[in-house]
Design a protein around this nucleic acid. Structure first.
Lengths: 344, 344
DNA sequence: TTGAAAGCGGTACCAT
DNA sequence: ATGGTACCGCTTTCAA
């Protein structure tokens, strides 16, 4: 029995527009005209058909790199992926923004430049020659990085997060607003000894610090007699929560802003197990308005965070791309308001 | 007073290696040799310095597209982003895989080809000429799409998800395993009237269907007298859960596999509010082993899903890239086992 | 040790 | 209505 070579892929090399031209019996120029529907040039119907047919037969797919090399620009919007998996809130925002940008005919690409930060990261991104970069704060983009990107042809550089960076437009998500809303809520309800949970997990400082700071600032400004703010480190595990619950009781804390709903749930459980009544003894406030908060008993009060519509942001990005000369703009895109339920 | 134009960016065009060569007083070839540390060629130290300095001064960043165009290949691994935001489990897996691949010197790019599926999506991906594609199931990659990708030079095409696709390697995540584990758990504990929650939210079928099917299949095979399986549609909102709780009671259901921990929490709350005792009257099982499940009362039993290490998968991808001729492999990468706590 | 030049896959100008 | 061709930025022989 003859041994038949199994699946000889023949590994034909990738078909190019020259191959299509050859097969269709026309020039590469004609192929380009036909496949791009170039309006400045009229190609006869029979020729069009032959070209299309040849392309289909060969399974021709244009080479994006070659195209944008020639064009001198691309419509790639680069969104470096943050190292930390984002919660549902932020990831929905990301998805929406992506979708909106794609409506503007941008190609959104998330690029994982893992380990790189600041200028190094910027250089890695710049190699891709994106027309715009939307950098989450965690990428630690700095002013020099912004310069690198602009020099390499990026027409719009945005940061997304709590900080702004010189030279770049900013979609400023000022976490202090969240802390502020929480603090006002507590003060208005007569709470005075306020604790603020700060996650111990690495990489969350950019989000947790501003919230703490917002609480601090608000309490100071209010000049309410006897009001104080205590930082409460908490790891995302029960043992840590148990210890923290004891500490809350010991320090006479009567209100806790728990960073977000998940940490709030963790702490609430520990407090309740410690015999503390919520909200009677200690008021608890989460944030992000997750479904799970509504399911707790008592139902969790929370700071609802409002992110802007992807549609609007996509418009903004597009506007800057069209007019790159303009001064960097700072857009305060974070809204925060308290949803009062039963835990506070 | 003279009006000074504010910030004249002079918008020099992007510096190329030719600019660097000019400034350093050498040829483009030399620039390339120096910046790439080409070992086959020895360049004198003074020249090296001059080149590096010129590159720094101009803020030169190489053009990735031009480079890979010349090279004829890239090290880009394309991971089309699924339309649905993934939970923490899956997103951790994604991150890990990305990190591992970057250790192998691959450039991982997530490309949002929103709205496109099947062959159209494949064509859009192929334009980027990735060396490998890891396509989540939701992208609906089909055999023709696989062909398109291979024809365009992709040396490794993987699908990630519950289905496999002809011609592509598969990291098969067989959700039936999850259902199977759940069913065995219930049957072993004497439960007979089993309900399976199926989320009503769009786009979750690829995950929920197999789980249901796994339960069904396992119960059928067990041939346990009187055992039955009921499909329980549930939207992620309290009202829907309330209705479902009533339905559970009415149908005499004594065990519910709730799709995941979040739906489980939602349903558990509704059942308890309806006066049903868990696990006495109805046993509840979630999946994903989220922290939140441990915090519920009773503590939620859950199906722990084990995804493979990113490291191992990166090795696999690399192996296939090196030897693209091999037959497509199917790797069963989903482990499922029940973590028994208090709700079952 | 360095430079000249070809060529990767497209596009668009200028002829024909 | 089509074809010839220069060129985008970079790498890599081959010569000098």
């Amino acid at each position: 029995m003859v041994q038949i070579p199994k699946q000889q892929p023949a590994q034909r090399s990738v078909p190019t527009s020259a191959d299509v031209a050859r097969l269709a019996g026309v020039s590469r120029a004609t192929v380009s005209y036909v496949l791009n529907n170039t309006s400045a040039v009229r190609i006869s119907e029979p020729t069009r058909r032959r070209v299309h047919e040849a392309a289909r037969e060969l399974g021709y797919v244009p080479h994006a790199a070659a195209r944008s090399l020639r064009a001198g620009h691309s419509r790639m919007v680069l969104m470096p992926t943050p190292e930390i998996p984002m919660g549902p809130l932020f990831s929905r925002f990301f998805n929406e923004l992506q979708w909106a940008l794609s409506r503007f005919d941008y190609t959104v690409v998330q690029y994982a430049s893992l380990g790189l930060t600041g200028e190094d990261a910027a250089r890695a991104w710049a190699e891709l020659r994106p027309v715009a970069v939307l950098a989450p704060d965690a990428s630690a983009l700095n002013p020099r990085g912004v310069t690198v990107l602009k020099r390499s042809g990026a027409r719009a550089v945005f940061t997304l997060g709590p900080h702004r960076v010189e030279g770049a437009h900013a979609l400023l998500m000022d976490g202090r607003r969240v802390g502020e809303a929480a603090a006002l809520h507590f003060l208005a309800r007569g709470r005075r000894t306020i604790g603020v949970v700060v996650p111990e997990e690495a990489g969350m400082e950019p989000f947790s610090r501003p919230r703490l700071e917002g609480v601090r600032r608000t309490v100071e400004r209010a000049r309410t007699a006897g009001a104080s703010v205590t930082e409460l480190p908490l790891a995302y595990e029960e043992a840590s929560a148990t210890r923290l619950a004891a500490r809350c009781r010991a320090r006479g804390i009567d209100a806790v802003f728990a960073y977000n709903d998940e940490y709030a749930m963790l702490l609430m459980r520990a407090l309740q197990d410690d015999g503390i009544d919520i909200p009677e003894d200690i008021a608890v406030l989460g944030s992000d308005d997750l479904m799970l908060g509504r399911l707790l008993r008592p139902r969790l009060s929370t700071v609802r965070i409002e992110l802007p519509s992807g549609r609007g942001l996509a418009e903004l990005v597009d506007r800057v791309v069209r007019d790159p000369g303009a001064e960097p703009e700072v857009h305060d895109v974070l809204g925060a308001d308290v949803v009062h339920r039963e835990s506070s």
